[in-house]
Amino acid sequence: SQQIATAKDKYEWLVSRIVKNHNENWLSVSRKMQASPEYQDYVYLEGTQKAKKLFLQHIHRLK
């Protein structure tokens, strides 16, 4: 749906803004993002596993 696509774009923007180093780990980054509406919306719509998967894809691109 359009809502999910929009939430994903915003979440990816948030991840790219916060995660600048491929050594970052999911636990510390997800804690930093918990207060962000972009993170909350995406997790609400798609779940934590998908959020983690996108985070890991971003990390992989930074290597």
Rank of each mutant, 00 (worst) to 15 (best):
S1W: 05
S1C: 07
S1G: 07
S1I: 09
S1A: 12
S1Q: 15
S1H: 09
S1E: 05
Q2L: 08
Q2K: 11
Q2E: 13
Q3H: 11
Q3L: 10
Q3C: 10
I4G: 05
I4D: 07
I4Y: 06
I4H: 09
A5K: 14
A5V: 11
A5N: 13
A5S: 12
A5L: 10
A5I: 10
A5Y: 06
A5C: 09
A5G: 07
A5P: 08
A5D: 10
T6F: 12
T6I: 13
T6Y: 12
T6C: 11
T6P: 00
T6D: 11
T6G: 08
T6R: 12
T6H: 11
A7G: 02
A7Q: 00
A7V: 11
A7K: 03
A7L: 07
A7P: 06
A7W: 04
A7E: 02
K8G: 02
K8L: 04
K8M: 06
K8H: 08
K8F: 05
K8I: 05
D9E: 15
D9K: 13
D9V: 14
D9T: 14
D9C: 05
D9F: 14
D9A: 14
K10N: 09
K10A: 12
K10E: 06
K10W: 06
K10L: 02
K10G: 04
K10C: 05
Y11C: 01
Y11A: 01
Y11D: 00
Y11L: 06
Y11K: 01
E12I: 14
E12C: 12
E12P: 07
E12D: 04
E12Y: 08
E12T: 11
E12F: 05
E12N: 13
E12A: 09
W13H: 15
W13A: 15
W13N: 15
W13C: 15
W13F: 14
W13D: 15
W13V: 14
L14S: 01
L14T: 04
L14Y: 06
L14V: 01
L14G: 02
L14C: 00
V15I: 14
V15F: 02
V15C: 06
S16C: 11
S16G: 10
S16I: 03
S16P: 05
S16N: 10
S16D: 10
S16W: 08
S16K: 14
R17I: 07
R17Y: 03
R17K: 13
R17E: 11
R17S: 10
R17A: 06
I18L: 13
I18Q: 06
I18N: 04
I18V: 13
I18F: 03
I18K: 05
V19P: 00
V19R: 02
V19H: 00
V19I: 07
K20G: 06
K20H: 11
K20C: 12
K20R: 11
K20T: 12
N21W: 01
N21H: 12
N21R: 06
N21F: 14
N21D: 15
N21T: 08
N21M: 05
N21G: 10
N21I: 05
N21P: 04
N21A: 05
H22V: 11
H22I: 08
H22M: 09
H22C: 13
H22P: 15
H22N: 07
N23A: 06
N23Y: 12
N23V: 05
N23G: 10
N23D: 13
N23L: 08
N23H: 12
E24C: 01
N25L: 06
N25T: 14
N25M: 08
N25G: 11
N25A: 08
N25D: 14
N25Q: 13
W26T: 00
W26Q: 07
W26E: 04
W26V: 04
W26G: 04
W26A: 01
W26H: 03
L27A: 15
L27S: 14
L27C: 13
L27H: 15
L27V: 13
L27N: 14
L27R: 08
L27M: 13
L27W: 11
S28G: 06
S28L: 07
S28F: 07
S28E: 15
V29L: 06
V29I: 11
V29K: 04
V29N: 02
V29P: 01
S30V: 12
S30D: 02
S30K: 14
S30L: 12
S30T: 08
R31L: 09
R31S: 11
R31D: 08
R31Q: 14
R31M: 09
R31K: 14
R31C: 07
R31I: 05
K32S: 07
K32H: 05
K32M: 10
K32Y: 04
K32N: 08
M33Y: 05
M33N: 04
M33P: 05
M33F: 05
M33D: 04
M33E: 00
M33G: 02
M33C: 00
Q34F: 05
Q34I: 10
Q34P: 03
Q34C: 12
A35Q: 13
A35L: 09
A35W: 09
A35I: 05
A35P: 07
S36F: 14
S36N: 11
S36K: 12
P37E: 08
P37F: 04
P37M: 07
P37C: 08
E38A: 11
E38Y: 09
E38I: 14
E38V: 09
Y39R: 01
Y39P: 00
Y39E: 00
Q40G: 04
Q40V: 09
Q40C: 09
Q40H: 13
D41G: 08
D41M: 09
D41T: 12
D41N: 12
D41P: 00
D41K: 09
D41Q: 14
D41F: 04
D41S: 11
Y42I: 00
Y42K: 04
V43E: 03
V43N: 03
V43P: 01
V43R: 03
V43C: 09
Y44P: 03
Y44A: 15
Y44K: 15
Y44R: 15
Y44H: 15
Y44F: 11
Y44V: 14
L45D: 02
L45I: 04
L45M: 10
L45C: 07
L45T: 04
L45N: 04
L45F: 08
L45Q: 09
E46I: 00
E46V: 10
E46N: 10
G47F: 00
G47W: 01
G47Y: 02
G47Q: 02
G47S: 04
G47P: 05
G47E: 02
T48A: 13
T48R: 11
T48M: 13
T48N: 12
T48V: 14
T48Q: 12
T48Y: 15
T48P: 13
T48I: 13
T48D: 09
T48H: 14
Q49C: 10
Q49K: 14
Q49T: 13
Q49H: 10
Q49V: 11
K50H: 11
K50V: 03
K50R: 08
K50W: 03
K50E: 12
A51W: 03
A51M: 02
A51T: 01
A51N: 00
A51L: 01
A51K: 02
A51S: 01
A51V: 00
A51P: 00
K52D: 03
K52G: 02
K52V: 02
K52P: 04
K52T: 00
K52I: 03
K52A: 02
K52H: 08
K52L: 01
K53N: 11
K53Y: 10
K53P: 01
K53S: 13
K53A: 14
K53C: 12
K53T: 14
K53F: 10
K53W: 09
L54P: 01
L54I: 14
L54M: 05
L54G: 04
L54R: 04
L54C: 09
L54Y: 05
L54T: 07
L54S: 04
F55E: 01
F55A: 03
F55W: 05
F55D: 04
L56E: 14
L56D: 15
L56R: 07
L56M: 10
L56T: 12
L56Q: 13
L56W: 09
L56A: 09
L56H: 04
L56F: 05
Q57M: 11
Q57W: 04
Q57H: 07
Q57N: 10
Q57I: 05
H58G: 02
H58Q: 07
H58T: 06
H58W: 08
I59P: 02
I59V: 12
I59K: 09
I59D: 05
I59L: 13
I59H: 07
I59F: 01
I59Q: 09
I59C: 13
I59Y: 03
H60N: 15
H60G: 15
H60M: 14
H60Q: 15
H60F: 07
H60A: 15
H60L: 12
H60D: 15
R61K: 13
R61D: 08
R61G: 07
R61W: 08
R61T: 10
R61F: 08
R61S: 11
L62P: 01
L62V: 06
L62I: 08
L62T: 03
L62N: 02
L62M: 13
L62Q: 06
K63D: 02
K63Y: 02
K63C: 06
K63T: 07
K63A: 05
